[in-house]
């Protein structure tokens, strides 16, 4: 049985294109989403998180900063707002971003406006997505 073809694109570049993939697990908007070959056609939103896929015996990881996923005839296409392979993640920078976002959230709790809270929360989610992806890949 032929495997899946996985393509991950972000606005600035194509992050990944790989054939013969056994399984993809993506951060769907309503929870994790497992995809195997011969999956029904599907279009869904993604939230910030980790996308993992298995090919041969290996499992690999990508950060997804929200976006969309489409399954069509054994081709999985991810349109990510941003995405990095686990080996591209700058863990230190993500840690700093997490600390910064937490600090902003703390400050905003005392009389900050909604926009600041939303922005800080999004930044926190992005930082966490990166950190967790790196951790799962055995880095950091």
């Amino acid at each position: 049985m032929a495997g899946l073809t996985l393509t991950v694109v972000s606005p600035e570049r194509e992050v990944l294109r790989e054939d013969d993939i056994d399984m993809v697990v993506a951060p769907g908007i309503d929870g994790e989403l497992g995809l195997m070959p011969r999956h029904a056609p599907l279009v869904t939103q993604l939230q910030a998180g980790t996308l993992r896929y298995r090919s041969g015996g290996d499992e690999r990881y990508l950060t997804i900063l929200g976006g969309f996923l489409q399954v069509m005839q054994d081709t999985v296409t991810v349109l990510a707002d941003g995405s990095e392979r686990s080996d591209e993640i700058d863990v230190e920078r993500a840690e700093r971003a997490r600390a910064e976002a937490l600090r902003e959230l703390e400050e905003a709790r005392v009389g900050g406006d909604d926009a600041t809270v939303i922005r800080a929360r999004l930044a926190l989610l992005r930082a966490l997505a990166r950190i967790r992806t790196a951790q799962r890949a055995g880095r950091g």
Binding site: A40, P41, L42, V43, T44, Q45, F68, M72
Partner: peptide
């Protein structure tokens, strides 16, 4: 493309989110 597609949550919502992109 094939019309028989599952949309999560539904086409209008996904479209609304995609337009800004």
């Amino acid at each position: 493309r094939d019309a028989d597609v599952i949309f999560e949550p539904d086409p209008a919502t996904v479209l609304e989110a995609l337009v800004p992109r």
